[in-house]
Design a protein around this nucleic acid. Structure first.
Length: 425
DNA sequence: TCTGGGGTCCTAGGACCC
DNA sequence: TCTGGGGTCCTAGGACCC
């Protein structure tokens, strides 16, 4: 019987797999990829998982044993991951009647066929991605997104399935038995808070949640969890969003390698961060009507800490770096506590709209004739690199002392001429 | 010494309106 | 003691995701 189904394709240990494409020596070894600042683990190879290394484990705690374990660490290389992601998505998209790119390493696609065909297509997707990009993927196929996620997890955890699980192709009763065994807390959309509340009501397994009354769930929780229940029962509730949806929010946020303890120091940080944020707005062709400036001391130090957050509103939405820098510096100047040891800061833009669009002011004449500062900076950066030009301290050739630490970087193999891999034959 | 960054959606509650 | 009934819009905060 031919049916319409949804496949979730995702790359195993994506960041680690990307590192391995260009450095095959990492194959078979425990590998972790670290967050910005080499702070903590964000991705682990199967071998690293087997060593008991958790996601979020601080690198400084692992470092001592790293050598004995033969553990390899890489700083995150988002330029490489982003580029390989685009290649994976292109290959995966060839197999679907529609495609939704859900995250850097996951994509939903539409499939049609009988159970044998669905399974076979899953295996083809896997082989194609391996051949064209060189990273391993798992495929879960089911009637709804929630079930496809669930199927994908079964594919991952059961080596006998060779990376593909189509629920329609599973033996009779098998899926139900798994759902009785597996806790609901592993489901897509069921986090820690929800699952402990469910537990108190006696709902522990996926099967329990599937059998729960949707109306009751909606009342006690929310429409979100109600949708999960319906999706477990095969009713599609989560729409596909094929076309690119407009961003609602843009952030630039980083922690520092060393604390900043003076207000003047934080003003310098914000001058640079506002500028990086402005560059992102410009890249996306957007302008913002509000900007929120945040900063924070360590969450792990005792005491109160200091977590300023100041929102500025702009009469006319803007992406002008000069306006944004001025507002950000003023905001942090008024809210930072002198002497507090700040470890991170960020800027967040909301109320976004297209920069070139039909803003109201345009109606009244050709006011936007003169070149935009953001556009000029953007052009220079495109041509000469992201650090080629900046305003004020943001233009310093030498990075400030608190800048990000990246001591285990791999090259940007696919996006930077100077860092292309060299092959000797 | 050292513990990520970037998002989405939903809900509750306040301000304001008639 | 009690104190309209709708409605909209906005924001902050919670929960979740990768």
């Amino acid at each position: 019987m031919t049916v319409n189904r949804i496949a979730l394709v995702d790359v195993n240990n994506f960041y680690v797999s990307c590192e391995r494409v260009f450095d095959p020596k990492l194959e078979g070894r425990p590998v972790v990829v670290l967050s910005n600042n080499d702070g903590c683990v964000v991705a682990r190879s199967a071998e690293a998982k087997a060593l008991g290394i958790a996601t979020g484990a601080p690198w400084f705690q692992l470092q001592a044993q790293a050598k004995a374990w033969g553990l390899v660490a890489r700083s995150s290389n988002y330029e490489l991951y982003g580029d390989l992601s685009a290649k994976v998505m292109e290959v995966v998209g060839r197999f679907g009647t529609w495609q939704e790119v859900y995250s850097i390493d996951e994509s939903f696609i539409g499939l049609m066929g009988d159970s044998a065909q669905l399974h076979a297509t899953g295996a083809e997707v896997r082989a194609a991605v391996m051949r064209h990009v060189g990273v391993p993927v798992c495929v879960g196929v089911a009637a709804t997104k929630t079930l496809a996620k669930f199927a994908n997890r079964i594919a991952k955890q059961n080596p006998a399935l060779a990376g593909v699980c189509a629920l329609d192709a599973m033996p009779e009763g098998h899926v139900a038995r798994i759902q009785e065994r597996v806790p609901a807390s592993g489901l897509w959309g069921v986090g820690g808070k929800t699952s402990s509340k469910l537990k108190m009501m006696g709902i522990e397994s996926i099967a329990d949640l599937k059998a729960a009354d949707p109306a009751m769930i909606r009342k006690k929780f929310s429409v979100v969890l109600q949708r999960t229940v319906m999706e477990l029962n095969g009713t599609e509730c989560i729409p596909h969003t094929e076309e690119h949806v407009d961003k609602q929010q843009i952030m630039f946020s980083r922690s520092f390698s060393t604390p900043v303890t003076t207000v003047a120091g934080m003003e310098e940080v914000m001058a640079i961060y506002a500028q990086r944020g402005a560059a992102r707005l410009n890249q996306e062709g957007l302008r913002a009507s509000t900007m929120t400036v945040t900063a924070g001391t360590s969450r792990f130090a005792g005491g109160e800490g200091s977590f300023p957050a100041v929102t500025s509103r702009f009469m006319t939405p803007t992406q002008d770096p000069i306006v944004l820098i001025r507002a950000a510096v003023a905001a942090i100047g008024q809210s930072a506590v002198p002497g507090a040891a700040y470890l991170r800061a960020g800027v967040m833009f909301n109320g976004l709209e297209p920069a070139s669009g039909t803003g109201m002011l345009d109606v009244f004449g050709p006011a936007a004739e003169q070149a935009d500062v953001g556009d000029v900076l953007g052009e220079v950066r495109n041509k000469f690199g992201s650090m080629a030009i900046g305003i004020g301290v943001g233009g310093l050739a030498q990075a400030p002392a608190w800048s990000m630490k990246r001591e285990h970087s791999s090259p940007r193999y696919t996006t930077e001429w100077k860092e292309l891999p060299v092959v000797r034959a």
